[in-house]
Simulated assay, not measured.
Amino acid sequence: MDAEQALDQATRQYRKTEEAHEEARQAAITAVIAALRGGMRPTDVTERSPFTAAYVRRIAREHGIEPARPGPKSRR
């Protein structure tokens, strides 16, 4: 296999895995939305998802999910 063939093969493989990654990302976003709408706490969603807390908040905002109400404040 020459350098051009190797590059072509590597590019095809990259694009194939890139598509699979995007499909998996979309599935994870769908699951995050369902979990938040189902009443799961954003903190728990973040812990169980591949996304950061900031990205989970962004997903929620983009899909019209209101922020969770703050919990009770602890007294010292």
Rank of each mutant, 00 (worst) to 15 (best):
R37P: 13
R61N: 09
A68Y: 12
E19F: 05
R37I: 07
D2I: 09
Q26K: 15
D2G: 02
A6F: 01
R75H: 02
E47K: 15
K16H: 15
S49M: 01
P67D: 00
K73S: 14
Q13F: 08
G38S: 12
R57T: 01
H63F: 04
I33L: 00
G64A: 06
R76G: 04
V56A: 05
D44A: 13
T30Q: 14
H21Q: 14
E22A: 14
M1Y: 02
R69F: 10
H21S: 07
A27E: 15
E4S: 10
V56P: 08
V32K: 07
R15K: 03
E66D: 15
A24M: 11
R37Y: 07
E66V: 10
L36S: 07
E62K: 10
T30P: 06
E22C: 05
R75G: 06
D2W: 01
A3D: 03
A10M: 00
T43N: 08
T46C: 00
L36D: 00
V32W: 08
A60H: 00
T17L: 05
A31S: 14
R76P: 10
Q5C: 08
V45K: 01
A60I: 01
I29Y: 08
P50L: 10
S74G: 10
R75I: 06
I59C: 00
A54D: 11
A3Q: 01
T30D: 14
P42R: 10
R57W: 12
T43Y: 05
D44S: 13
E19P: 10
Y14C: 06
